[in-house]
Design a protein around this nucleic acid. Structure first.
Length: 233
DNA sequence: GCGACAG
DNA sequence: ATCTTGTCGC
């Protein structure tokens, strides 16, 4: 069987794991961002019992109106047949192809991308946010609603409080309280950004909800709940 | 060997 | 992730 390469998304679990180990070494954990004017949010949802994969991408302008909040500049949806099942640790191979297709539909090229899932807070340090960041060569942040690996203390109740997420003696992310009394989110750097800066951006993009706006809006679009994209004027 | 396990 | 109604609370 031929070796796995970046353009092949139909890999065996063994090949996928080997590829993650190779790619993880290319992840940049320090800031290398252009001035942020647009922030994108990416998320994937499923339809028809999982047969169809639905990728959503939203672009928000930064900074937004202090009263209205962040403005939606663009929002797109891409649907395609689901390729592979969900396997813990191999999520990106299931979601990235569709995410890339949706991202490619965007007219605006954001300077920062927030992804629903882990960045380097992954057993092999290559969660979906990191994988996507490497592919797009853009700064990415992983914002997950639950933990994949690592341990942490309880997070203080006040909004904005956080505690380190550790795994094998290394800090791989932060568990952030985005709303008092609500389950915290797992923030980890994806690519070309530090954990500290990642936390800054997530907090800055927070509305009154648990998830930051980019991820929250993409989530809503991907799960086909909120209003559909309005046709162009 | 026995659990845990992003979405 | 998705399947699903009502219900508790600000």
């Amino acid at each position: 069987m031929p070796d796995a390469n970046l353009h092949d998304w139909n890999l065996t679990p063994e090949q996928a794991i080997a590829l993650q180990r190779r790619m993880a070494g290319s992840i940049e954990r320090e800031d290398r961002l252009a001035p942020v004017r647009h922030i994108a949010g990416i998320d994937i949802g499923f339809e028809q019992g999982g047969e169809v994969t639905r990728a959503a991408a939203v672009v928000l302008a930064w900074p937004g109106d202090p009263l209205i909040g962040l403005d939606i500049v663009e929002q797109v949806v891409h649907r395609e047949p689901t390729r592979m099942p969900y396997i813990p640790g191999l999520l990106s191979f299931r979601e990235i192809p569709a995410a890339l297709a949706a991202f490619g539909m965007l007219t605006t090229r954001p300077e920062l991308v927030m992804v629903d899932g882990q960045g380097i807070a992954h057993p092999r340090r290559l969660g979906v946010a990191s994988h996507l960041g490497l592919w797009l060569d853009l700064p990415t942040i992983g914002v997950a609603k639950s933990r994949l690996c690592g341990v942490h203390d309880e997070v203080p109740e006040p909004r904005g409080e956080w505690t380190p997420l550790r795994h094998r003696g290394e800090t791989i992310g932060a568990v952030l309280r985005t709303r008092a009394g609500v389950k915290p989110v797992y923030v980890s750097l994806g690519h070309r950004i530090s954990l500290a800066t990642s936390l800054d951006w997530v907090v800055r993009c927070l509305g009154r909800t648990k998830l930051p706006e980019p991820t929250r809006l993409a989530d809503r679009l991907a799960s086909r709940r909120g209003p559909m994209p309005r046709p162009a004027d």
